[in-house]
Simulated scan of single mutants.
Amino acid sequence: MKRRTALVAAALVAAIAPAFAADWPSKPITMVVPFPAGGSTDAVARLIAQGLGQKLGQTVVVDNRAGAAGNLGTDVVARAQPDGYTIVLSTSGPLANNKFLYKQMPFDPLKDLTPIVAVGEIPMGFAVNPNVKVNSLKEFLDEARAKPGKLSIGNPGNGTIGHLTAELIKVQSKVHALSVPYKGDSPAIVDALSGTVDAVCLPITALVPQIQSGKLKGLAVTSRQRFPGLPNLPTALEQGVNAEATVWLAIAGPKGLPAPVVERLNKDINAILATPEAKAKLAQFGATTMGGSPQQLAHLMATDSEKWKKVIEYAHVTLD
């Protein structure tokens, strides 16, 4: 599997357009955001667009193309000319796992996009109602194993990363617990507070106030390292549960984007992400900056695709 994902990652960054305009960029660049204006992805995109415009000497226009869980806007870029004037700031949904959730997927991110750079990531958090008499994720899973199908885990919606993370935890631990989808983080939290569901698996930022106040009991965070906002909350990995899961943001272009364009965008965006302003903006949404090479993003896209494909098939999750 490692060799296969490495080959996929290499292929993702090897596609180079046959010609490259030496005066690039000579006109404004469009950064498509496949989500509505005003959200966290849009805010991060506008920060990067401003900094990128200053470095390139050209305006970078943010174009919001919301719809189909990010697929619509990302597809606009997958179909664009690979001339360096159309890129996308998308998330792990369209870039990794949506193709296994939708039967009619308009593009394949591993074949139709050129990875440029990872931007940031937000881990999931796992918390329970205080009346659930467990003090760790391991204890919760032991309880679920002893009472198959009796414990319930709320999530922010069918096919969301919160839902898939809960399914990943269940698959890895070989337990059966009831998954309860909601329309967003807030209704799931309300039912966890009331005890209607025993636990919730949501982006950690949605859970910070409830865990800090003691209204919910935090059991785990699904990042590799502990979440800075909750330093006392152990990771799932620390507790012996092999469940690393984050929703991440990344910038990509159409297939065949010229190597000089990829290299310049990667260099400049990495420089922007290293600034205190960018780190603070991502931290505002509970995200940590990532950065790195195009090859690292290609590897992330390939390995996350492999991971979520297995979980989605095992749990029979579908969105159409």
Score class of each variant (00 low, 15 high):
35 F>Y: 13
24 W>E: 04
23 D>W: 12
26 S>I: 01
26 S>H: 15
20 F>Q: 07
37 A>P: 04
19 A>H: 14
14 A>G: 04
10 A>W: 09
12 L>Y: 04
26 S>F: 12
33 V>R: 08
18 P>N: 13
30 T>E: 10
9 A>R: 09
17 A>T: 08
39 G>A: 05
20 F>M: 06
17 A>E: 13
17 A>G: 15
38 G>I: 01
28 P>A: 06
31 M>H: 05
17 A>M: 06
32 V>C: 09
16 I>R: 14
34 P>K: 05
15 A>E: 12
36 P>K: 02
29 I>G: 00
30 T>W: 01
39 G>L: 12
22 A>D: 11
13 V>M: 01
13 V>K: 01
16 I>E: 13
37 A>G: 08
30 T>Q: 09
27 K>Q: 04
11 A>S: 13
21 A>Y: 10
12 L>G: 15
33 V>H: 06
19 A>Y: 12
29 I>V: 12
25 P>D: 03
26 S>P: 01
22 A>T: 10
13 V>R: 00
22 A>G: 04
36 P>H: 07
37 A>C: 07
23 D>R: 15
15 A>I: 04
39 G>F: 09
13 V>A: 05
14 A>D: 11
24 W>T: 02
9 A>G: 05
19 A>S: 15
11 A>I: 01
24 W>A: 07
25 P>W: 05
19 A>N: 11
35 F>W: 08
37 A>I: 10
38 G>Y: 06
32 V>P: 03
21 A>Q: 12
18 P>I: 08
28 P>Y: 07
20 F>C: 11
25 P>V: 03
12 L>I: 03
37 A>F: 11
15 A>D: 14
21 A>M: 06
30 T>V: 12
14 A>V: 02
33 V>F: 09
12 L>E: 14
30 T>A: 08
29 I>F: 00
11 A>Q: 14
13 V>T: 12
10 A>Y: 09
15 A>S: 13
12 L>M: 15
11 A>C: 10
34 P>W: 03
16 I>Q: 12
21 A>S: 12
10 A>N: 09
13 V>I: 11
10 A>K: 13
36 P>I: 00
10 A>I: 01
33 V>L: 05
